[in-house]
Simulated scan of single mutants.
Amino acid sequence: MSSIDSPAQHQTLAILVGVDLGLPHFDQELEELGLLAQTAGMQVAARITCKRRAPDAALFIGSGKADEIKLLAQMHGATEVLFDQSLSPAQQRNLERHMELPVNDRTLLILTIFAQRARSHEGKLQVELARLQYLTTRLVRRWSHLERQSGGIGMRGGPGEKQIELDRRMLGESIKRTKERLQKVVRQRSTQRRQRNRRDTYTISLVGYTNAGKSTLFNALVKARAYAADQLFATLDTTTRQLYLGEAGRSVSLSDTVGFIRDLPHGLIDAFRATLQEAADADLLLHVVDASNPNFPEQMAEVQNVLREIGAADVPQLLVFNKLDMMDAERQPLQLQDTMEVDGLQVPRIFVSAQKGTGLPALRLQLAEMAKAALNESPEIIEADVRLGTIE
């Protein structure tokens, strides 16, 4: 099965490949992979899917399907093959030899987008760390051109081993340096959070699946100019602003964080832990959901998975079902505020359109009520901290 898109000049033409292994979230149309490819600056030439009970150890898809993809690439002039699943280094190397084309997977595609989008010093460091960690497993592939060399007197090990070991050591040193630099960022963020806590600031973090409209909502609430676009991973760097809530008579701290996505590479979760710590340390998570997307339950589940990984599963949430203006007529809610069960708990939910402004006054009121309730719960702790000199 394949669908052809008209190619554009000066862009990498890619064949998209998806393998249905019986998992519930399989994207039959490869829509998300196509959006990722376009976000990375590629043009989709064709899409092809197949079913397997389990991945082939050598080629992931088997030799027959690999031949079919090779012919499809030749037919459309494609210059790269992209898999919707993660490939092992051996599978990637074997596929490239079989198809005589560069073969990459979802993990590298996401890394590429993050590298293109990172703007802050911290974001660039985090992406670099994830890229280096990914490369350490791909060293054999990089030095496959040395395989025809034969050993001689005084040579030990297999072909190209010395160069591989040299690269591995260089990568290890680069990873160590990058981690040390990131640790400084973690300490700086920790200091900033302690200062906010001393000022008795209520902190709110926006979380959600990528392209759910978090940055648009952030801009609408705080009148900021954070970059927002209808694309995956439009924002990578955390932006924090003060949001004044008149109903509560105080300001709160609002942070916009990186969007989540299905099968977000673990290396990226580890690398972005300093950024994602904003969510783990928040008093409230605004879980922004694209209400117009029919797959929103699966997207919500992925966000919950990442929140568990970063230790933010127990932070109170407010569900913000965004893009109300784009919902089909038959799916419009009967009321704009209710509750929804998430992981066995009833969580308050509100429907809004960040683009049109619908529901934002009600959202601000809800935030004010939650902030007042949370801050009024712990006056004894605040007074104790004042006596100890921890609050200025």
Rank of each mutant, 00 (worst) to 15 (best):
I391R: 13
G160Q: 14
G249H: 14
L345P: 01
R364V: 04
Y134T: 00
P333A: 05
A57M: 10
G172P: 03
I153H: 03
S190D: 15
Q277N: 08
P159A: 10
T39H: 09
K124L: 06
A212H: 09
A73K: 11
G246W: 14
E309R: 01
V186P: 01
V303L: 08
L23G: 06
Q192A: 01
L166K: 13
F233A: 00
S144V: 15
L245N: 00
V258T: 08
A291W: 13
T240K: 01
H25D: 06
G160L: 10
I110R: 00
L108Y: 02
E369F: 15
A78K: 07
V315Q: 04
T79N: 08
I391Y: 15
L111S: 06
T238R: 02
I164V: 01
H121W: 12
A362I: 10
Q188W: 10
E180T: 04
G158S: 08
G213I: 12
F321S: 03
V352F: 04
D230E: 07
R194Y: 00
W143L: 04
T210H: 14
V103Y: 12
R250K: 15
A384V: 12
G158M: 15
T201S: 05
M327V: 15
Q116Y: 12
M326D: 13
A373N: 04
E180S: 00
V347M: 01
G311Q: 05
R194T: 07
R47H: 12
I113F: 15
L243P: 04
S120P: 02
Q299P: 00
S255C: 12
R177T: 12
D105E: 08
I153R: 10
R93L: 13
G151H: 02
V19C: 07
L318G: 03
L35M: 09
M370I: 08
D105S: 01
L268H: 02
S378C: 09
F260N: 01
Q183T: 13
E392T: 10
L132G: 06
G267Y: 02
I381H: 14
G34S: 05
V222S: 14
V81M: 02
S144I: 14
L111G: 10
P102M: 14
A280D: 09
S2F: 15
N322I: 10
H76D: 00
R131A: 10
T203C: 10
Q149I: 13
T12W: 15
R47E: 09
T238Q: 03
Y134K: 05
Q299R: 07
R387V: 15
H287T: 05
F60W: 03
A66G: 02
D56R: 00
V252G: 02
I391N: 00
A229H: 12
G77M: 12
T136I: 11
Y202E: 00
Q133K: 03
I110N: 01
M1W: 14
H266C: 06
L307S: 05
R262P: 04
T358W: 07
Q192W: 11
D56C: 10
E128C: 11
T210V: 13
R141K: 02
Q299W: 02
F272Y: 08
D167E: 14
L276P: 03
D338I: 08
L182V: 13
H10K: 07
R52S: 07
M170S: 15
R364P: 03
P316K: 04
R196S: 08
L95W: 04
R331F: 09
R181V: 11
I382G: 13
G41F: 11
E122S: 09
L82N: 06
Q299A: 05
V185R: 02
V352D: 03
A384Y: 14
T136R: 11
